[in-house]
Amino acid sequence: MSGLRQQIKEMIVEVLNLEGMAPDGIADETPLFGEGLGLDSIDALELIVEIEKRFGTKIANRDIAATALASVNSIAAFISASKGEAPANQAT
């Protein structure tokens, strides 16, 4: 699962053009929105499209997005569950 988390972090930095931030600079549990990474609703839309494109996983509505996009861990868990894989072990 660490490989999936790393892919997600790289996606976030690349797609959202987070200048000066390395993928490893995003902790697995860091909130992506609000007080954490400071992303906003436009970024959420961008992530929804990119997650579907890269991982073939569709985020169907706003409620699911709010839960799934909370952190790198939650995105990894959502992608794994969508593919019928075992829940991701949460990194500590």
């Binding site: 797609v15 436009i42 839309l45 961008e46 499209v49 990119e50 579907e52 494109k53």
Partner: peptide
């Protein structure tokens, strides 16, 4: 393919 456009780029 896929033809999914970046919402930000489209904007």
């Amino acid at each position: 393919t896929p033809k999914d456009l970046s919402p930000t780029r489209f904007h």
